[in-house]
């Protein structure tokens, strides 16, 4: 442990502390705990639509691989089914907070949760 201490110089500590502050700042600004009210769906570079989260609804969105099933259930949303290989989007599970995103890269579909106001608004904090 003493050896380790002698290796970390004052500049190192400066860089580590600065980076740690930057990371905390990033978490504070980019993550919010505000429940989302709306869902924005994109396919490739097009916005498919904005949907109210306070409902129970199944959506079928077409992508290059086929149809992705998205289910909205009273304030939360998830990829229920997607024709991609890795199924990362499906495994991500339910999303319910402002700023959360689920992306199916192979099928070029993304879900983004937004609030009443603009997401990442400083008023969220």
């Amino acid at each position: 442990m003493n050896k380790l201490k002698s290796q970390a110089l004052i500049g190192d500590i400066f860089i580590i502390v600065t980076s740690a502050i930057a990371v905390v700042f990033l978490f504070k600004t980019l993550w919010s705990n505000v429940p989302a009210s709306q869902l924005l769906i994109r396919q490739a570079d097009q916005i498919i639509g904005t949907y109210d989260l306070e409902q129970t609804r199944e959506l079928h969105i077409h992508g290059p691989l086929g149809e992705s099933h998205i289910s909205i259930e009273q304030g939360k949303v998830r990829f229920k089914q997607s024709p991609c290989n890795h199924q990362y989007c499906v495994h991500q599970g339910w999303l319910n907070r402002v700023g959360q995103v689920a992306i199916c890269l192979p099928n070029q579909i993304s879900l983004q949760l937004i609030g009443e106001k603009k997401p990442y608004d400083s008023l969220n904090y």
């Binding site: 290796q7 990033l26 978490f27 994109r42 959360q100 995103v101 992306i103 890269l105 983004q112």
Partner: peptide, 28 residues
């Protein structure tokens, strides 16, 4: 190129934290 919209910003803090931790460990 891969995800051309602002949704990526949600992941930035995680990646930054990982960079700090692994950068530190690798450096040591």
């Amino acid at each position: 190129w891969l995800i051309p919209h602002a949704g990526v910003s949600y992941l930035i803090p995680i990646f930054a934290l990982a960079a700090l931790i692994f950068g530190l460990i690798n450096g040591i």
